[in-house]
Design a protein around this nucleic acid. Sequence first.
DNA 1: AGAATAAATGCGCATTATTTGCAAATTAAA
DNA 2: TTTAATTTGCAAATAATGCGCATTTATTCT
Lengths: 147, 147
Amino acid sequence: MDHGSEFEDGLKRSGLKKTKQRTAILGILEESQLPMAADQVFIQLKEKGIPANLSTVYRILEALAEKKLVNKLSIVGDNRGLFELNRMAHRHYLVCLGCKKITAIEHCPLEDYEKALEAETSYKIAGHKLDIYGYCPKCLEKRRKGS
Amino acid sequence: MDHGSEFEDGLKRSGLKKTKQRTAILGILEESQLPMAADQVFIQLKEKGIPANLSTVYRILEALAEKKLVNKLSIVGDNRGLFELNRMAHRHYLVCLGCKKITAIEHCPLEDYEKALEAETSYKIAGHKLDIYGYCPKCLEKRRKGS
DNA sequence: AGAATAAATGCGCATTATTTGCAAATTAAA
DNA sequence: TTTAATTTGCAAATAATGCGCATTTATTCT
């Protein structure tokens, strides 16, 4: 009997039953370095030969987000929900406005700021979302000629 | 002949024709201190007695975003696009995860960070989106009792 | 292991958010 | 004001997501 990855184990801890769809979805998110939309996850499941229904994928992703095993997010110019594995070390993305490519950013410059904000507003800060937008070298090149 | 507000004038500059729907929408966004969804804008138009079709509202908001007169954004847990007037002074929001209330934050702690990132990635940074999530005092109170 | 129980999934359909095609109306230019 | 180019209205198409209920599956209990 093999136990799943560090992340798949989260299912038990969160009181969710361990089903093949859920384990598979966590696996897929774990492999992906970037956030995924429900239908992308769905396609991956198919490719892995795991039977699943799109509604189920939505339900699972919502449930995982509820339990904080994954984060639900959305980026500008893309009106659908994206999901990423909650690796605790939270991430930020650099998004190219030209080709829409998404790159993860390492360092987060906001810890101190949040403290200050808590003091100032009496909110309990739970987290934040930071994405940075710009143009990647390739798209810069195209713009220089094109436009 | 009266000329519109600072923001309505942006229409000419951007090469968009000045129609009553567009001017009205810019006006509505200008009055609103918070980002609005297409259907909220639509309702405001009705209330002001300005005839408009929801598709037109979507098209106008998209067009204005295209021309950078407004910013299109989206926040976690709300899967629809939100639009706010581009006041150049960019804004960040503090979102309550309980009641979903949105509050604007004044100061932006990211200027220096962007410089560094540009150098590091060769991207041309155009801007960023930062939202901070937490629980407002009221919702904190509820949680303390409830849950 | 087998039965009981609670939870999860599949499937088809309902909704909500957004987009599109095309004819009619409107704006800016001449 | 006639024209040419946009823009709008309307209706119908998509896209993304959610829901209800019968069936299946994961855990618990024996």
